[in-house]
Design a protein around this nucleic acid. Structure first.
Length: 819
RNA sequence: GCCCGAGUGGCGGAAUGGCAGACGCAGCGGACUCAAAAUCCGCAGCCGGCAACGGCGUGUGGGUUCGACUCCCACCUUGGGCACCA
């Protein structure tokens, strides 16, 4: 160490600042989007720019994705790694209301802070393509997306019961209601009836489901696939028809258990069901009306929460069970939901828990039609027998004795032949309500005209700009604050020119984020939402890494919007994300970080103290990336010591006399093993073990006083994805003048990953009693001889009969002895 | 209630049928130092033993296997998701 600058040791602050400037000046992170031969679109979920700044959880996610992008670049891809800000929505608006600031002022200042932080951690971001969803040049195209759906009949307005948050004073999607409370503020949600815009995502349910199992289109984390499948909620059953006596009318029900129809002893309709009036007898009219009013007042969530006492009332009417031909009473009850199936059920109290509870409460007939393994037709039912896999039918006419599974198909076929039913596939998925009666979002581009009706804003008049108003607070009216601004609200009808009014709802934030990945590569273009050529080059997204909290919202909506644009002929793919990997969650003291818990860790001070590179390694070394971990700052000195030691080693490698010494055979083997382990670990996002492998190599080099320039150079390269500034500096010290990220990823020679001798364990009766070192080519006989010669082994074999010898080459030798 | 995931030293974790505890943190002993920090060398699962060595050991109980952290069954704990979906 003769250079005084080197003897000062590793100085992260200066080095990181130096490289951040150089990357920007030399446009190191800006791939040529028009001339890519091996494009790699490395996407991560863009953040919502909160006032608090990025927390450790964000940084964990971004660093993990960035490591992958840098790795892929060194493997020879042109990597496009864009970043942006998901800045519309209730979150920002509520914060603005609370602090008395206008979101239009708050958001730019938050974005500046986020930009500073994201730069500081050394993300390989293409800042020339940064976007914010609140920018009119972006939401112009969000509105355009709405119009594409509108044109195709996939956007419609419907009056209906919706989730209303009394604190946020807005409608929430079902997905935003968690256990009856508002996802944002925790207030209990109420039911309100409003006109809302919906997207027909249910039309796409079968495709959204089918593609999940198509490996040609999607390679996703299994947990995310499963979450989407559960959310789509496909079930197969039958739609059966029950005639109304002395009438042409009939009621349709959906059931997954047509095999139990002989036990359908009554029917239940949702209180809102359109046939309730027709089936209600005069004597019951008043009681039914009272019940319906009460159900209407109840909030949606209370109605949809299980384990509540069942309430209901008889309509006085009857329908005919098509299997038994008998008249059964019709009830209404709020445990039956209008928006699933047909809004009516055949109640089989013997074999459905809810129907059983209802029948017990109101004294209705319970009939057993399925007998379990040790049961007969007359075995009393103390609770519903719901198992549909191991019973046979009883009290079911000519189907008696049939197993339930087969009977379901047989009965459906029989009823179908009689004109009383069909098989039916049903989804749990709802249409997507995109209306928000709020201010901070893109106005829905629709105009209402007395003469022309609902008129879409012509595309050449987009964007419908969100006016800068001061009184953006929502009120109780259920109408957006925008309606209070006459000069914005009233416009000439685009079709006839008459005085018309604007739609005042803004769209859901999830619409902003459902297409942003299409915008990035063409974000500088004002004339198109996405350039067709660049889209063909860069999309679908090569790798998407993000949190599983978006498994069913953002990721499903993005897939839906992409499919719609594909069907419109604008995209040649229907799945936007070829590969998706869910990362884990960073928790603090065993709990998710949140402001209310007061356990949010702000990364800035750690980066200040230890440097961004040390912090990145620390986060990636914490545990498996896809599982997350508990944030404890106790261990952060380890990664820093690791870098300090490599810094010194690079110094040694710069001296020609030691650097070019021959590489000892053991080190050669370790080196190639490390290259393999690190490469394969990075590919699978096993960052913690990849770092451990680098540490092992470092330890070996230090123990053997080896500072081979070749080995040290590759060590620095393999470290580069984790510690980009540090690696650049070392790369420069090693005499290179271009960025390390344009260097070629080290390769290993498979033959050199195996040593010619190997140490194997020797067991006697399954217990390890010693080890022997052998040639890799040693035969079982040679191994056995060597093992028997080992004193510690011989001692345990003494006086015992060896029944068998298990030989696992390269691993172990086991003497099986008489017990 | 249903569906996923996870339980391994003082701590984070490694090993997915073959020498359990790699790597790191914290700890202990030593060197350097007036001293401390930093750094370097060494020790380190638990129990017994001066030691050689022996026994035990991956949430609990069973099972499969020559061999189980790993596979199977049951249970416990815990994290997450979905929940009157017919």
């Amino acid at each position: 160490m003769t250079d005084p600058a080197e003897s000062a040791g590793y100085q992260p602050t200066a080095i990181e600042a130096k490289w951040q400037v150089r990357w920007r000046e030399q446009r190191t992170n800006e791939p040529d989007l028009d001339h890519a031969t091996a494009p790699f679109y490395n996407l991560m979920m863009f953040p919502y720019p909160s006032a608090e700044g990025l927390h450790v959880g964000n940084l964990f996610a971004f660093t993990g994705a960035d490591v992958f992008g840098r790795f892929k670049r060194m493997q020879g891809h042109q990597v496009f790694e864009p970043i942006g800000f998901d800045a519309f929505g209730i979150h920002s608006e509520n914060h603005a209301i609370k602090t008395g600031q206008h979101p239009a002022e708050l958001i730019p200042s938050n974005i500046r802070n986020f930009t500073r932080q994201l730069t500081r951690v050394g993300g390989m971001f293409s800042w020339e393509h940064v976007l914010s969803t609140t920018d009119p040049s972006y939401y112009k195209w969000t509105q355009w997306v709405f119009l594409q759906l509108f044109k195709r009949g996939l956007a419609y307005k419907k009056k209906g019961a919706v989730n209303w948050c009394p604190a946020d004073k807005t409608v929430l999607a079902n997905e935003q209601v968690i256990a009856g409370a508002c996802e944002r503020c925790g207030s209990m949600v109420e039911q309100r009836v409003l006109e809302q815009w919906y997207f027909r995502i249910t039309d796409y349910a079968d495709r959204l489901l089918a593609n999940l199992d198509d490996p040609g289109k999607m390679d996703w984390s299994p947990s995310t696939v499963l979450a989407q499948k559960n959310w789509l909620g496909r079930s197969e059953g039958a739609e059966l028809t029950f005639d109304v006596p002395s009438s042409e009318a009939s009621v349709r029900v959906y059931t997954t258990r047509p095999d139990t129809i002989f036990g359908a002893t009554f029917m239940v309709l949702a209180p809102e069901h359109p046939m309730v009036d027709m089936l209600t007898t005069p004597e019951q009219r008043e009681a039914v009306a009272t019940y319906r009013r009460a159900a209407g007042a109840k909030d949606l969530v209370a109605r949809k929460t299980g384990d509540k006492a069942k309430t209901g009332i008889a309509t006085g009417g009857t329908v005919i069970n098509p299997a038994t031909g008998t008249e059964i009473p019709v009830w209404i009850a709020d445990y039956v939901l209008m928006d699933y199936g047909t809004g009516a059920i055949m109640a089989v109290p013997g074999h459905d828990e809810r129907d059983f509870a209802f029948a017990k409460a109101y004294g209705l007939e319970i009939v057993r039609v399925v007998a379990g393994p040790d049961e007969v037709a007359s075995t009393p039912l103390s609770e519903a027998y719901v198992d549909n896999a191991s019973g046979t039918l009883v009290n079911s006419g000519r189907f008696d004795g049939r197993p339930t599974g087969e009977a379901a198909a047989e009965i459906t076929a029989w009823l179908a032949a009689e004109g009383h039913g069909t098989t039916k596939v049903q989804y749990r998925l709802y249409d997507w309500c995109i209306s928000r009666q709020r201010y901070w979002g893109p106005p829905i581009p629709i105009i209402y005209c007395e003469a022309c009706g609902t008129v879409p804003v012509p595309e050449d008049q987009l964007p419908v700009e969100l006016p800068l108003i001061e009184d953006f607070r929502p009120d109780d009216s259920g109408v957006s604050p925008l309606a209070r601004h006459a000069d914005w609200y009233f416009v000439p009808c685009p079709a006839c020119g008459a005085k018309a009014r604007r739609e005042t709802d803004v769209s859901d934030t999830f619409l902003d984020s459902a297409w942003y990945f299409l915008r990035y590569p063409s974000s500088e273009r004002a004339d198109v939402p996405f350039d067709p050529v660049r889209t063909r080059t860069w999309l679908p997204v090569t790798s998407y890494i993000g949190g599983n909290e978006h498994a069913v919202l953002h990721l499903l909506y993005s897939r839906f919007i992409t499919m719609v644009l594909h069907d419109a002929g604008m995209l040649d793919f229907e799945e936007p994300f070829r590969k998706f990997r869910a990362h884990g969650l960073i928790v603090k003291d065993g709990a998710k970080m949140s402001k209310s818990r007061g356990n949010v860790v702000v990364p800035d001070e750690y980066i200040e103290k230890w440097g961004a590179d040390t912090f990145r390694i620390y986060l990636m070394f914490l545990g498996p990336f896809q599982e997350g971990g508990d944030f404890r700052d106790a261990g952060i000195s380890g990664p820093r010591r690791f870098l300090d030691k490599i810094w010194d080693l690079v110094g040694d490698a710069c001296h020609p006399d030691v650097a070019n010494a021959e590489i000892h055979h053991d080190i050669l083997i370790k080196w190639h093993q490390t290259k393999q382990r690190v490469t394969e670990g990075l590919e699978e996002l096993h960052y913690n073990t990849a770092i451990a492998a680098l540490m092992e190599l470092l330890n070996v080099l230090r123990e053997t006083n080896c500072s081979s320039r070749e080995v040290v150079t590759s060590l620095v390269q393999m470290l580069a994805p984790f510690a980009p500034h540090f690696a650049e500096e070392c790369w420069e010290r090693l005499g290179h003048t271009t960025t390390i990220f344009d260097s070629t990823w080290p390769v290993w020679i498979p033959e050199l990953t195996v040593d010619d001798t190997v140490t194997i364990g020797v067991q006697v009766g399954g217990k390890t009693r010693g080890t022997v070192t052998l040639s890799v080519e040693a035969t079982a006989e040679q191994a056995e001889a060597a093992a028997r010669a080992e004193e510690s082994v011989a001692r345990h074999l003494d006086g015992r009969t060896v029944r068998k010898v298990i030989w696992v080459p390269g691993r172990l030798l086991n003497f099986v002895v008489e017990s």
